[in-house]
Nucleic acid binder design. Structure first.
Lengths: 238, 238
DNA sequence: CCTTCACCTTACACCGACTGTAAGTGTACA
DNA sequence: TGTACACTTACAGTCGGTGTAAGGTGAAGG
């Protein structure tokens, strides 16, 4: 499978050059459309690696690096003109995986990128939603100091929900993934498993995280503390 | 828990300086006693990271890097005076995790080492014996294209055997690890589990890998193909 | 050659986890 | 208030993992 590399660089000429370098090696290259709000665009693209410049219009590369490292699992390679130790230490401290300075020989960049991709491929696939982590391989959910191993069926459901956040996942979609359709099983079994999943997530302190959207399906809901403001009008009633 | 860093460097002054740098940061530093046969000494020490010079007496750093990367799971940071792209590419290609050139600022070295340690801590613990791999966390054994998930008890036994290769592991040791001694369980259950483990390993093509040492315990045996020479006098009978 | 001891193997039964079925309850919305 | 949708609980079947029991195998040693 082709691996996807996202280049966050505002100098259009350099960006093209980098893209060409990676494409020649068989990678698929992604870019972002604007530097106004790059975070969401990067997260949505699910790249396998990002090459990040530090001097960006708007938010700095440092902030971006810190934000992304708290929320995702792909490696970040810093490529910058700032050739000084202070910046390098800061970037590495924020979680950056490598720090190269311009001008950088394409072969060095490729070798460093390849090494990061190789290392990260060996990492277990861990999905994140707020402070809830889910290790897909062994179906283990972790929330702060609580953890719990889910049965396989419930794990598959949680995986789907976490992968599609913040979208709603239809019952058909879930049934297809687990039983290959609803022809030969009662739809009720899905609801039973939803109840079981909810109970398990409740055990580790995430009550009500799985929300029903009547007639459409299920989705994950942000925690109460995170939506205090927008729900201010309703909360006081409780 | 203190992390262990092994420094492979023949210049004794530089080695002391590096050791001091790491110890000041709270790491425990290991060295090797000679450069005649460093491989086994490094593997036995089970360090969390090694800092490796390229110009060594005897075997070159490149060979060492390649050998170690095929057999172990800790990160390798190259620290060398060879400041040229060719060597860097070669080292990275052989699996090295970072490549720094002397002179190197201690803070840069520390930051790079810390980043590698952090990344590798997230990797699953995988034990190796010849071409047999065992993922301890989810009890999964892999041999070439075959794989299989072991029951927990059998996994614990295999883990012990692999960790102590090529030593013999006593029955008491195994019983202690699994049942906390043989006071309240029949010794027979150990033999039953050995049979089960052997059958499972047989399924993925490693018949006879678990060997009994009468009166002492159990150990893992190298595969037939690897000991053709020393067994040459016996094999023809079969 | 026979005994003995250590080790191996198989069959069986228990237990607990996971899963789907069935039936009854709750709830949003027209 | 009725209907469609969603939730919950109880139950039973299945399966995998584990330990017990009992008999078999094989090598060391007299």
């Amino acid at each position: 499978m082709k691996q996807h590399i996202m280049i966050i660089e505002d100098d259009i000429y350099l960006r093209e050059e980098l893209a060409h370098t990676f494409e020649k090696e068989g990678y698929s290259v992604l870019s972002i459309s604007s530097f106004q709000n790059p975070e969401q665009e990067i997260l949505d693209a699910h790249p396998d690696l990002i090459v990040l410049d530090l001097n960006l219009p708007g938010k700095s590369g440092f902030e971006l690096c810190k934000y992304l490292k708290g929320r995702c699992t792909f490696p970040i390679l810093i490529l910058t003109a700032r050739d000084n130790l202070t910046d390098e230490l800061r970037a590495l401290g924020l979680g950056a995986d490598d720090y190269l300075t311009k001008p950088c020989h394409p072969d060095r960049l490729l070798a460093r990128a390849a090494r990061l991709l190789k290392t990260y491929q060996r990492l277990p696939l861990i999905l994140q939603f707020e402070d809830l982590s889910f290790d897909v391989d062994n179906c283990r959910v972790i929330q702060n100091d609580h953890s719990l191993t889910l049965p396989e069926t419930e794990g598959k459901i949680l995986k789907l929900l976490m992968e599609h956040v913040p979208d709603v996942v239809s019952k058909e979609c879930i049934a297809n993934e687990i039983w290959g359709g609803l022809e030969y099983v009662d739809e009720n079994i899905l609801q039973v498993n939803m109840t079981r999943l909810r109970k398990n997530l409740d055990k580790i302190g995430r009550k009500n995280i799985v929300q029903t959207v009547r007639g459409q399906g299920y989705t994950l809901k942000e925690s109460k503390t995170a939506r205090v403001n927008e729900q201010a009008g309703q909360e006081p009633k409780l």
